[in-house]
Nucleic acid binder design. Structure first.
Lengths: 137, 137
DNA sequence: TTGTAAATAGGAATGATTACGATTTTGTGA
DNA sequence: TCACAAAATCGTAATCATTCCTATTTACAA
């Protein structure tokens, strides 16, 4: 999912493409890892001086509902990143910088065998640690 | 990890075994799923009328640090359960009742092959959905 | 260009969690 | 057993992320 894809999704669904909506997408396009709302707020305050929480969180939820952003709960804060829509995979997440690396292993195919009679709605497989760049810094 | 194991850990490490510490362990021993601090507060308020947040959270952190409780972040709330110390595994978590089922698959052995030069500190593999009991209710 | 539904502002409210000084309790060792 | 020091708890205030609300502004279709 890139910037233009995301804007197209917005338009297709009839949402308005405001300047701030584009700013938010650009922010996530320029990062390649999970970022908390806080970072987005700082980024937009640099540009606008002030930004409404409502704008931040409403759009984060909207993008998540539209599949534009992926979300994960890390230490009591929700973190977001642009969705990787090309194929199903999981992530290593650097706990220092938030950058991610794709992991092309999904254990669900074998795991479901242990879950007959269960309804499965979602799953999460994440690996935490420090990336090579942060290890060298 | 059962109640007695947990009390032994406390004593070995020189922590005092107060009535409330035992109450908290008994609460988790009587549940077999992830519970939020909120539920523990309600449980202890039923017995004592009032309970300090400090007592709740200090002990939850202590138990987590000692490996007595496992923790997971679910929708902005931290949830805890007694550690399953017998062997390494993961969980299906029922989003209705919080009960868990062990999943004896761990994808880490193959995943680490994709992560040379990365420092790996932790990982999470969780499956969310509804358990048979909640599906029938 | 204009009307209107959607989006944003600004700030109050909420909910989980943390922090802290005062008080109480536990376990130790005299 | 008793007294003491350290640890634990209390009660409450503060903090932090997030949600909610009403008034105002804006995008975009006609």
């Amino acid at each position: 999912m890139n910037l233009q894809d995301a804007i197209n999704v917005l338009k297709e669904k009839g949402y308005k493409t405001t300047g701030k909506r584009k700013d938010i997408l650009e922010f996530f396009a320029s990062e390649d890892g999970y970022r908390p709302a806080k970072d987005l707020i700082v980024h937009l305050e640099n540009k606008y001086g002030t930004i409404s929480f409502d704008t931040i969180y409403r759009n984060l939820h909207l993008y998540h509902d539209l599949g534009i952003l992926e979300k994960t709960d890390l230490e009591g804060e929700k973190h977001f990143r642009l969705s990787c829509s090309h194929h199903h995979h999981h992530h290593f997440i650097c706990t220092d910088c938030g950058k991610t690396k794709e992991i092309d292993i999904c254990p669900m195919d074998t795991a479901t065998a242990e879950l007959t009679n269960y309804e499965i709605d979602d799953h999460k497989f994440e690996i935490y640690g420090r990336c090579p760049a942060c290890l060298n810094a």
